[in-house]
Design a protein around this nucleic acid. Structure first.
Length: 441
RNA sequence: GGCCCGUUCGUCUAUCGGUUAGGACAUCUGGUUUUCAACCAGGCAAGAGGGGUUCGACUCCCCUACGGGCUGCCA
């Protein structure tokens, strides 16, 4: 059986790091096994689902190189869900209920007050046809619940290990609403069976869903796939990540200059026993992925940790990869390669290149200590006329040394500060040919 | 309240009863470098608490505490 996984976001918003982790794990599992990766848009909620978000999700996945083999849309499969619902009705696993949300809420509160678990009491199951007709005559609209077998539901989770949940501690799930909307739990189960999904990795927030979905899939005559539930991400300060989703959307991270490979490297390893290290390629990521190496405990994630990885990645980029970006800064072709050689070691995100180019093009605001003022003036007077080459720095500093007697740190440091306005930066020998203006001191 | 999962260096984690409790990232120190980065070498740093079981517990069991998830006509 070919390994088939899926990423099933509902297009009600953009993807964030939590989603990405799920998507990436499923993608890597499929690729490693030479299987299929399905992108399934869970868009049964007509009100909240938007095409704009569906497009956004695709754009984000593309950006990261998480290409899918197949796209599915639940909104196109409504007939199939109705069919499956009929099958469940015929099998006696589906029953119509009539309590209103307010009534259900009241029941839950009552149960809680009495110290009972807030599990649906199945009172609608006891209704006979005449009573149901009476309900409808009252103007009540029926909705449908799945009748759980009250046994223990067990599976060996790919991350959590053996799990056992007592079905009696869970309410019979509502699968179809009074307005006819097919709910996630149901559509997802039908799809996973129909689409031949063999392995589902999703967040630990779905553990209870998995228990009920296993029964639904079996009732549908299908074989439940293997499951693995990864832990939830929490923020660096232990706050719930959901509160920060706004700042952790992929679009946001992209805007901040985070490189895809840095993000992927982080998400493929964080929370696992394998070290988080920058991968050189998607192949490397696929090769080194092991879903079983993840732990069950909640995982802290600090987006700042993405920047060291991004820097590492950026510094290893060949000139060809950034040629266009550099041209866009206005760097002439003859200087572009030399500029990149100088810039790459001194930036974190590619956008940082702009500052260096501005500095080389316009000159810097010199940093000169009071005690170095005369020395710097004297040195600048010794500068040969432009254009400068890689040899200029050595020749010039030798001449300055000769004239002033300064050497070592006392010689080089003030000159670097005067020319670049900074204490740190690239090799000065390489900087000189890039400078477009004489330093103004 | 009920159900499920969890708790080892700052962080992510290894250890399937006996270890000087290991690694990675972060951090610090030293080397190298005009500087930064990179690189090399080294350092600091951990088993939530309490009971058991055992010759011996981070590891197995129970309790407590704490954390996370679920408990929707959301996904």
């Amino acid at each position: 059986m070919t390994v088939t996984t899926r990423f099933a976001p509902s297009p009600t918003g953009y993807i964030h790091v939590g989603n990405l982790r799920t998507a990436l794990m499923n993608f890597l599992i499929a690729r490693k096994a030479g299987g299929q990766f399905i992108l399934r848009l869970d868009d049964t909620d007509q009100d909240r689902s938007k095409e704009e978000y569906a497009e956004g999700i695709k754009t984000d996945l593309d950006w990261l190189g998480l290409h899918w083999d197949r796209v599915e849309k639940q909104s196109l499969r409504m007939d199939r869900y109705r069919e499956a619902a009929d099958a469940l009705r015929k099998a006696g696993r589906f029953y119509e209920c009539f309590e209103t949300p307010v009534e259900l809420d009241l029941k839950r509160k009552k149960q809680l007050n009495m110290g009972r678990p807030p599990v649906y009491d199945r009172s609608s199951l006891a209704l006979d046809e005449a009573e149901r007709a009476a309900m409808r005559a009252e103007g009540r609209e029926g909705y449908w619940r799945f009748l759980l077998n009250q046994s223990r539901i067990e599976w060996t989770d790919g991350i959590l290990g053996p799990i056992s949940i007592d079905a009696a501690s869970v309410s019979d799930p509502v699968l179809i609403r009074a307005d006819g909307q097919v709910l996630y739990t149901f559509a997802s189960s039908v799809d996973d069976i129909d689409m031949g999904v063999t392995f589902i990795v999703r967040g630990a927030d779905h553990v209870t869903n998995t228990a009920t979905q296993i029964q639904i899939m079996e009732a549908l005559g299908g074989t439940p796939p293997a499951f693995a539930h990864h832990s939830m991400l929490t923020g660096a300060e232990d706050e719930k990540l959901s509160k920060r989703f706004g700042t952790l959307s992929l679009r946001d991270l992209r805007a901040r200059g985070v490189e895809p490979m840095a993000l992927l490297s982080m998400m493929a390893r964080l929370g696992s026993s394998k070290p988080v290290e920058l991968a050189g390629s998607m192949e490397e990521l696929i090769e080194g992925f092991d879903v079983g190496s993840f732990g069950a405990a909640p995982t802290k994630f600090d987006p700042e940790d993405l920047f060291p990885l991004t820097r590492h990645h950026v510094q290893g980029l060949p000139f060809a990869a950034v040629r266009e970006r550099i041209a866009a800064l206005g760097v002439s072709d003859d200087l572009a390669e030399a500029f990149w050689a100088v810039a790459k070691g001194n930036i974190t995100v590619l956008a940082d290149m702009a500052d260096w180019w501005t500095l080389f093009r316009d000159g810097a605001e010199p940093l000169v200590d009071e005690g170095d003022r005369e020395f710097v003036k004297q040195a600048v007077a010794l500068l040969p006329p432009q254009p400068w080459s890689n040899a200029t720095w050595a020749e010039w500093t030798a001449a300055v040394k000769e004239a002033t007697g300064r050497k070592g740190k006392d010689l080089f440091r003030p000159l670097r500060r005067a020319i670049t306005g900074r204490d740190a930066g690239p090799e000065m020998a390489d900087v000189m040919p890039l400078l477009q203006k004489m330093p103004q001191v």
